[in-house]
């Protein structure tokens, strides 16, 4: 953001109006990152800490993220908080697909990062990143509300770097480049096969 001829936007009325120059990316990113609307995807214990983060003491609204939407169609970021079982994973994936672009995923807690304490279970997905692209991982079992806030701020930094220019690496619609689908990690095949044995189609 810059000034021309020493004039600024706060100039008193009647004097020459100021001009500010900046990139359109900056303006769009400021607007986007300061009102991230999360989708409530509270699955287990971490959901309680997510609710605590939105309550009186931690006050998530300081960062413009207090508008928890129950509908995926109004949300920007999905906070996957808790253990994802195969049975729920299919639903999580479907809800993610219903969110409008650009969309982000925060994986909150050990269970959704990697399966955590339940990683040896027959019914738990070992990490939500096997089926969705994850932007920020928040470690902890469960993470404290401060950790979630830090995760959201990390996401803000990521959004700050994004651009509308199609040929740049930080393109906003990275997930939806034409003809490209985000590749799933190699372990995903194992999880999809395990889910199939549990009667769930994750592919």
């Amino acid at each position: 953001m810059g000034l021309i001829d020493g004039h600024n936007l706060d100039a008193p009325a009647g004097s020459m109006p100021g001009l500010a120059l900046t990139s359109i990316d900056w303006v769009i990113n400021v607007a986007r990152r300061n009102s991230l609307w999360p989708l409530t995807m509270g699955l287990a214990c971490c959901a309680i800490e997510m609710i605590c983060a939105s309550a009186a003491r931690y006050d998530i609204s300081r960062f413009g993220m207090e508008v928890f939407r129950p509908s995926p169609r109004q949300a920007d970021v999905m906070i996957v908080a808790g253990t994802v079982t195969y049975k729920m994973a299919a639903r999580v994936k479907r809800i993610y697909e219903q969110m409008p672009e650009p969309k982000y995923v925060i994986s909150m807690g050990s269970c959704s990062n990697s399966g955590g304490i339940h990683a040896d279970s027959y019914s738990v997905l070992r990490g939500i990143d096997k089926i969705l692209p994850v932007d920020v991982y928040v470690p902890g079992c469960p993470p404290r509300p401060e950790a979630l806030l830090h995760g959201l701020m990390t996401l803000q930094k990521k959004i700050d770097r994004q651009t509308l220019r199609r040929n740049k690496p930080n393109y906003i619609f990275e997930n939806r480049r034409e003809g490209e689908i985000t590749p799933l990690p190699p372990e995903a095949a194992v999880e999809i096969e395990a889910a199939r044995l549990m009667g769930i189609d994750l592919s």
Binding site: T83, T85, M88, H118, D120, S121
Partner: peptide
């Protein structure tokens, strides 16, 4: 069953003291 983590099965492979943090996550 959307949060069925198979805790009872997992308990059978853990020692008694390891059960406490596991079942903590039952009624969180």
């Amino acid at each position: 069953g959307f949060l069925h983590r198979g805790m009872e099965k997992n308990s059978e492979g853990r020692e008694y003291r390891q059960l406490i943090p596991l079942w903590d996550r039952n009624d969180y």
